[in-house]
Design a protein around this nucleic acid. Sequence first.
DNA 1: GTCATCATGTAAGCCGTTACATGATTGC
DNA 2: GCAATCATGTAACGGCTTACATGATGAC
Lengths: 208, 208
Amino acid sequence: MLELTVLGVLADQELHGYELKKRLTELLGTMSSVSFGSLYPALNRLERTGQVAVVEAESDTSPIPTSGSLTGEVAAYRARRGRTARGRRGKKVYSITPSGRARLRDLLLDHTGDDRSFSIRVAFCRHLNPQDRIDLFQRRRTEVAAQLAERSASRSDRRIDKYLGLLREHHDEALERDLAWLDRLVSEERQTQSDAQPEHEPSGGSRT
Amino acid sequence: MLELTVLGVLADQELHGYELKKRLTELLGTMSSVSFGSLYPALNRLERTGQVAVVEAESDTSPIPTSGSLTGEVAAYRARRGRTARGRRGKKVYSITPSGRARLRDLLLDHTGDDRSFSIRVAFCRHLNPQDRIDLFQRRRTEVAAQLAERSASRSDRRIDKYLGLLREHHDEALERDLAWLDRLVSEERQTQSDAQPEHEPSGGSRT
DNA sequence: GTCATCATGTAAGCCGTTACATGATTGC
DNA sequence: GCAATCATGTAACGGCTTACATGATGAC
């Protein structure tokens, strides 16, 4: 989870730990929350395993333009490596590596965890291609639908307390709205996809 | 959290660990989930600290009638203590003690933790008196309202990604509905209260 | 008698937290 | 120079999980 959020943020911009935490709070607010005590060890772990790399702070904090070119980025973070400043405990600015991006994709697609982790996945799902995104949404949809089914199955087998009843009712409503929301996400995604390539025919045929 | 759910379930009926887990799943489903690996140690901990006591299985599994009388219960679980069956590793049926009920109240009122823990509190809030219940709901209301305020404050300070935007929108709607639900809970609770004692006057006055 | 289920427990590990320690930078 | 804040890290601990070990009970 931590790993996912860190990679998700670093996929957009290079940051050092302290900034990263601020950005994270600003982005996800109550949904996430990380403490330094877990963030810094996580960054070191990610560095050891080659998913992020320490780069030199470029004095200007221009956010890296999110250009699609991966190969360009490889060159970029390699180029900046040559020791410039920050001996003795300066800021450590981290940049995601190609291997980190691959890992991010895996984490976004890996479908374990609760509703919180799904929210975080959605927050960073722009780093997925459209089809993977649809898969993410639809697998969640299946899960939520299953939960709803299970609940209506176990309903009224034992008459329950008033407050528990109200709670379930409220919770069921929330699940149903989640379902509708997921459907909307999927259909919008499909719309976008068919807008991009409106051809129904395979790519052969006439070339007018 | 575990402690709360265990005490909450045992406040209604005496159960042994295995049954307790089943009941918990049936009651809270996806909201809770406990594993034996944490449940049994928790029960032992609660027993050591006097919040639950091991009683003898009464052969019939009649659910303890939730009579209001605490003193009656004290006598009841004391009476059953004399060793009856279950030497060598039989079932250990647990009963909540008065001290456990006090602890349950504290845990229900203690207001740390996330939305999940609030749900669990609601699930067991029948063990609170009406005023404590209103306090529980209202403190949560304040929290949720604060979250909403904070979010609308940080809105549009930086133009955000489409999916993050949709996520926030959905999440905000959920928070607003939580708010409305909490308001409903509070007002219904107040209604119940005023139905019970419809007198606006202090208890002196005429005795018709 | 053996298999499934009921029933209790321990050990190792994961993933996060809080509390603490330390050092660098900036404003006054 | 000194406080506030920025910035990185370690240590101890908490609460839960999974995997494992063990034993009792009942069905066939």
